[in-house]
Simulated scan of single mutants.
Amino acid sequence: MIKERFKNGGNWVTLVGFCISLAVVLTLLLSYALFPIDAAFYQVRHLYPISAGALYQNYVELMTYLQFPWIDKLVLTNFPVSASGALHFADVKKLFILAWLLLIVTAPFAIRFLHRLKVKKQNYRLLWAAQVGLVVPIVIALVASINFDQFFVTFHQLFFRNQDWLFDPATDPIILVLPEEFFMHCFILAFVLFEGMMLIGIIKARRSLKQLR
């Protein structure tokens, strides 16, 4: 009995980890399309003399470094990187790789668990977890929308052990072309993706309940 409960709890933890990591990884991938749009809209090239093509190349170089564990040094073609800047990006790299690892590890277990629920016609069990998963991010989003600047600062204080994320444009001009709005849009994108998964879970659960009735 205890073993079964432990296994059941592990399935739900794995599913949550899968949904969170999938939302993060999809956001990372979609940011390749989002960045040039924000860069053009907020006219960041007025702050640093660089062509649109070169700017995007540097963004790809940055994201490649952040997501590939075998690349151990950050080198940007058109931007210098200070020691503190490199240290911060190294910390970000750890979080991004952690998201990828979490997705890779949890995916087979989460998919198997979801498949088992479907086969046993127990998708209704998704309802409570999906409802909680729907509400909690909304509360966080409401708090963030009140003062995104403070939310942004608090987020960095929680996930980073130092103040290296406070970039000096004089030594790390890359920060000039990464507007705060871009990060905000990435947060929104991750939120929408996660909420979409929760809505899918709720829909499947309610359909399952209708079939039982």
Results as ranks from 00 to 15, higher is better:
Phe68Tyr: 14
Phe68Cys: 10
Pro69Val: 09
Trp70His: 13
Ile71Cys: 03
Ile71Lys: 08
Lys73Ser: 13
Lys73His: 10
Lys73Gly: 02
Leu74Tyr: 07
Leu76Ser: 10
Leu76Ala: 08
Asn78Leu: 01
Val81Gly: 03
Val81Pro: 00
Ser82Lys: 02
Ser84Ala: 13
Gly85Gln: 06
Leu87Gly: 07
His88Thr: 10
Phe89Ile: 08
Phe89Gly: 03
Ala90Glu: 11
Asp91Gly: 05
Val92Pro: 00
Lys93Pro: 02
Phe96Pro: 00
Ile97Thr: 07
Leu98Cys: 11
Trp100Leu: 14
Leu103His: 06
Val105Tyr: 04
Val105His: 05
Thr106Leu: 07
Ala107Lys: 03
Pro108Ser: 11
Ala110Met: 10
Ala110Tyr: 02
Ala110Phe: 06
Ile111Tyr: 09
Ile111Ser: 11
Arg112Val: 02
Arg112Ala: 04
Phe113Ala: 07
Leu114Glu: 07
Arg116Gly: 02
Arg116Tyr: 02
Val119Ala: 09
Lys120Cys: 05
Gln122Glu: 15
Gln122Phe: 02
Tyr124Phe: 15
Tyr124Ser: 12
Arg125Leu: 14
Leu126Gly: 02
Leu126Ser: 04
Trp128Ala: 11
Gln131Arg: 06
Val132Glu: 02
Leu134Trp: 08
Val136Tyr: 01
Pro137Phe: 01
Ala141Arg: 03
Ala141Ser: 11
Leu142Met: 09
Leu142Cys: 13
Val143Ile: 15
Ala144Arg: 01
Ala144Lys: 01
Ser145Gly: 06
Ser145Cys: 10
Asn147Arg: 09
Phe148Leu: 10
Phe148Thr: 08
Phe148Arg: 04
Phe148Trp: 05
Asp149Met: 10
Asp149Leu: 10
Phe152Ile: 07
Val153Asn: 05
Val153Arg: 07
Phe155Arg: 14
Leu158Cys: 13
Leu158Asn: 13
Phe159Gln: 12
Phe160Leu: 08
Phe160Val: 14
Arg161Ser: 08
Leu166Ala: 12
Phe167Val: 11
Phe167Pro: 01
